Computed example of a mutant assay.
Amino acid sequence: MNKNKSSKTNEIIFEDTKPKGESMVHLLNQIKGFVNYFSGVLKSIAENYQQLETQERESNPRRAEFTFDLALSTVIEEFGLDTKYKNFLIDNILSAREKPTKTKTEKLNLIMI
């Protein structure tokens, strides 16, 4: 990267030689791995929290239903993140939850075809 002080810009220059140290792809993979791991931890905590609230609701039926979305928002709120980061994590977790998983039978059927 070249810093051009006169135009106050940074220029990215691609070279044929491999850079020394870790590459940008490696860094991005590490960030992606952290976000996925952190999202998984948040999901697990939110599921546990929802389960506890559901158990409390059984003893007091007047309490409102406590959804996973509400549990997740409450857990993420404790980290004091900016709204854009909260929304990113919530979208990341909810979209991963909504992906249908294939059963072993469905996987075997695809292999046999």
Rank of each mutant, 00 (worst) to 15 (best):
E56Y: 05
T67M: 07
P19D: 04
M24K: 14
P19T: 04
L70Y: 05
L42P: 00
N87I: 10
S7T: 15
N48W: 06
T83Q: 11
L42H: 02
M1V: 12
K99D: 06
S73M: 11
K99N: 03
S23I: 03
G33W: 02
I111Y: 11
R57M: 10
N10T: 14
T101Q: 08
T101A: 09
P19E: 03
I31D: 03
T74C: 08
P100T: 14
E53M: 04
T103M: 10
D82R: 14
P19H: 01
T105A: 15
T67C: 09
N87Q: 10
K43N: 09
L70S: 01
N2K: 15
E58V: 12
F68V: 03
A64G: 05
T101P: 01
P19F: 00
V75P: 00
M112C: 13
E56S: 14
L52K: 14
I90T: 06
E58D: 13
Y37K: 10
I31T: 11
L42Y: 03
N48Q: 14
R57E: 04
L27M: 15
F66A: 06
K99L: 05
E11A: 05
N29W: 00
K32R: 11
M112H: 08
N2C: 11
E65R: 07
Q51D: 10
A71S: 05
P100M: 14
E56D: 12
T83G: 07
E58H: 07
L42G: 01
P61S: 01
G33Q: 08
A71R: 06
I12D: 05
N10K: 15
E15S: 12
H26Q: 09
N92G: 00
I13Y: 03
L28W: 07
V75Q: 00
Q50D: 05
E98K: 15
L81K: 03
T67V: 12
N4R: 15
K43F: 13
A96C: 12
Q55V: 04
K32H: 08
S44T: 10
A64N: 08
M112K: 11
Q55P: 02
M1D: 07
N48M: 14
K99Q: 12
F38K: 04
L52T: 10
V41C: 06
F68H: 01
V41F: 14
S95N: 07
Q50A: 01
E98S: 03
M1P: 09
I90Q: 12
Y49F: 15
K99F: 01
T9S: 10
R63Q: 07
M24A: 14
L110N: 12
S73V: 10
E53V: 03
D16F: 00
I90K: 13
I12E: 10
I13E: 07
E56G: 10
T83N: 08
S73Y: 11
L94Q: 09
H26P: 01
L72K: 00
K104S: 06
I12K: 11
K84Y: 05
T83R: 11
E53I: 03
E65I: 13
